[in-house]
Design a protein around this nucleic acid. Sequence first.
RNA 1: GGGCCUGUGGCUUAGCCUGGACAUAGCGCCGGGCUUCUAACCCGGAUGUCGGGGGUUCAAAUCCCCCCAGGCCCGCCA
Length: 552
Amino acid sequence: MFHEERARIARIMREITGAEEVEDGGIHADLATSAAFALAKIERRSPMEIARELGERIAKHPDIGDMRIEVKGPYVNFHFGDSYAEKVLSRAIRERFVEGERKEERLVVEHTSANPNGPLHVGHIRNSIIGDSLARTFRCMGYRAETQYYVNDIGRQIAIVVFGLGKTGIARMDGEKGDHFIARVYIAANRLLEQSEETVEEIDRLMQQVERGDPATVAVFRRAVEDCLAGINETLKALNVIHNRFIWESDFVRNGDVERVIARVKRLPQCHEDGTLYLDLSAEGIEKPYVLKRSDGTTVYAARDLAYHIWKGHNFDRMIDVLGADHKLIGTQLIATLVLLGEVPPVILHFEFVSLPEGSMSTRAGKFVSADDLVREVTEKAFGEVTKRRPDLPEDERWRIARSVAIGAIRYDIVKVSPEKSTVFDWREALDFERQSGPYVQYAHARACSILAKAGEFTPAYELTNEFEVALMKQIGKLPFVMEQVMHELRPHLLAAYARELADLFNTFYRYVPVLKSEGPTRASRLTLVLATRNALREALEALGIDALSSM
RNA sequence: GGGCCUGUGGCUUAGCCUGGACAUAGCGCCGGGCUUCUAACCCGGAUGUCGGGGGUUCAAAUCCCCCCAGGCCCGCCA
């Protein structure tokens, strides 16, 4: 595997030069080092001369095996030896390719956690897709990763919904999803809110009642949140997004955790109570006060979030939160406070906003493209494409494929962009199933499956005879390395790029290298390569939450 | 006004943290390829002041400083 070879060179470099200087060889080699430049400065000799000596010393190292060392100017290049193909392919054709031994570390990935005041829109699902892909990658690599949706069921937004349910007279339509119904109520309630100040007081009163635990109010809140959440969950399921648990914010109020953490916070010297209860974190470099209680004694989201994270910290070894860039300030405040309390802070992955061509999205203003609309449109387009290509298939089979293709297109389209980039939602791109897309990768997988289905039994062999086969095998060998990178850097888009490159290489191989028509050990080797490719594609797609179709 | 993020061919985008050998790919454009394992495919071509300016370095898309443009945040919302 690539990561093992890389680690080996790093070790050898460390022994010889004292620094683990290894880099990707790009088009020149599998791995390379430019350590000669740094040494040239210290030793005051030419980098070429040093590279030459370095190359000789590395070549003599007992651990170098059959790796070929090549000195090119100031660079020392490493080319994997003949044994590499068998190392990679014999491993990749196993039932589970990347998964190593099971890790004991317990992870919790919190993602989506959208307020239950309407359906998920194309901004929310960026959170879901990044978070779900991350959790899946951890699981692929043998970690125990639980995903949680933190349900804000007692915030101001929900109070507005409850108020609206009583005042607007809006009723749920036949067949309407709960989340879409709640959104209509929420939007209408906000209109009323803009008109009079008394309504604001009414909402404050609702929030006080629910926090006190007034049974009637609690029941109305609960019902509204459940209706909305049922709709949201349906959307998430359609997107292959899995939440292991929904954690209700109000539980931390009811079980006393919130009061307990407030009591602890009060003992901190940074805590102040004048009107509101807040922390002055300016010594931590945060100028904005971190308010935990309103002047009417009710808690704000921050207080409940603190309790939630303390609970997570006690039940998991590592916490990862996926949050929008708008949560950066509050995220820093949360982390600083947890540290002051001697608790474990989460690692927060922030992603930048998705906007519409006409401006930013807003549930309150009713300006958004819902995930449900997106899924429906893309599925219909996909159904058309499937029908065009496979008119022979029965209709339900075509719909099944279309759904998988649509989710592949949507998830890939979103996950492929680095999280720190803000994006503008574009229907044309969302509906594109061509080269840099999920369906493109799914298609490569289906082609591999098709060959294997026609091949019958074969004994694995590892004799690669041309550049197409070698390039493909090398890309397969990188999958564990890429997944490691995704876990360390919390950047699932790297996996999307990897999968696309793997599909590229396979498609080229497919075009130039006949498999079923070849014979003897060549045929066995090519089938081994196809099987390895299928496994690598399958596991990469699995980590991206995209169905690995065997036919499309 | 302050903070964080972003700025790479007409459009979208990788690389930036961890500086190195001709800057990644897609769309679009031009030209080819289905009597060969699914053409949601493949091959070739044109297109780049890596926002601008300084600096550090043997070497800068990558590090530092300044400026410009866009997004987000700066609530007793979440």
